[in-house]
Amino acid sequence: MAVVETRKLTKVYAKAELGAVNEVDLLVREGEFLVFLGPSGSGKTTLLRMIAGLEEPTRGEVRIGGRDVTRLAPRDRGIAMVFQSYALYPHLTVRKNILFPLQAQKVPRARHAEKVEWASSLLGIGHLLERRPRELSGGERQRVALARAIVREPQVFLLDEPLSNLDAKLRASAREELSRFHKRVGTTTIYVTHDQIEAMAMGDRVVVLAQGVVRQIGTPREVYDQPADTFVATFLGSPPMNLMEAGEVIAGFRPEHLLPASLATGPAVPLRLRVATVEYLGAERIVYGVLLGGRFDGQKVVSRIPATVPAAYAADETHDFVVPEDRLEFFERASGKRTGRREFAWR
């Protein structure tokens, strides 16, 4: 277990171009499960690969366990990595795949059997040891990749979208399993994903990246409820936050806080809305509408109404909605950054 730190870490591929990763300062705490979340091209994988030593930084420093490892080869960093494709060695059995890092790191032969036993039973793949990777299902491959990563007890785990090759159903259970696995071994883990559900569900903290820049670092609750800027506000949450501009201020509210007027408790902003379309999703309905009257006439908004609210909505109907005042977020228009409560002209 170790602390991982990056200082002004930067990767520029071509001169005169914006860097893939720009001056990233991070401190991953001991035993933490940190998630890099961002759209594709946000630099999250490049950042991870620089921490792994597979990509050379243009500038900046990587420190693992207090030691500067910026110029060290991947094998000397005490890390283990699970790749998106799992990168299992196709010509070796599962047992030999798991043994591979032990042999490569010259762990005494006498300890091999016991280690393989430990790693394979931890992931419940004891019965697969004599198979080859091509004979395994996606979920089994993922577990073998994890076993291979854990077997030499690395200081840090790096995972690059390890669930993206699994089907949706398996992904949910694998997510839960991975969380449980992390709690058990307690190794510092950095996890890259573009899937916000994975990030929210598993991360102790989430690093939101866009265009190679860290937009926000915080717990899942912080990045969702107090987004640092309009990018984070719209990237997290599905459907994204509703944003309305007035003067120098942008007000935002999440679809789940745009509620039928009948549910209002406490001070709230009233909004009248003509329904455009309704998506019925079983547990909830997504109502796409257009505001009527006042300053924001014609502005599109989205509301998320749980199935527990009995009201019915159909296209072209007009309904009264409210947004509780304490659920409003404010951003500066020029920078997009979050600000405190502001005067906002709704009318």
Partner: peptide, 26 residues
């Protein structure tokens, strides 16, 4: 796939060893 060699290098090999022990047998 490049990732195979990278996995080997993270697992403790030099690039040359990754070439000998992974690329050649495959």
């Amino acid at each position: 796939p490049r990732e195979l060699e990278e996995a080997g290098m993270v697992d403790g090999l030099t690039r040359f060893q990754a070439f000998l022990r992974l690329v050649v047998p495959i």
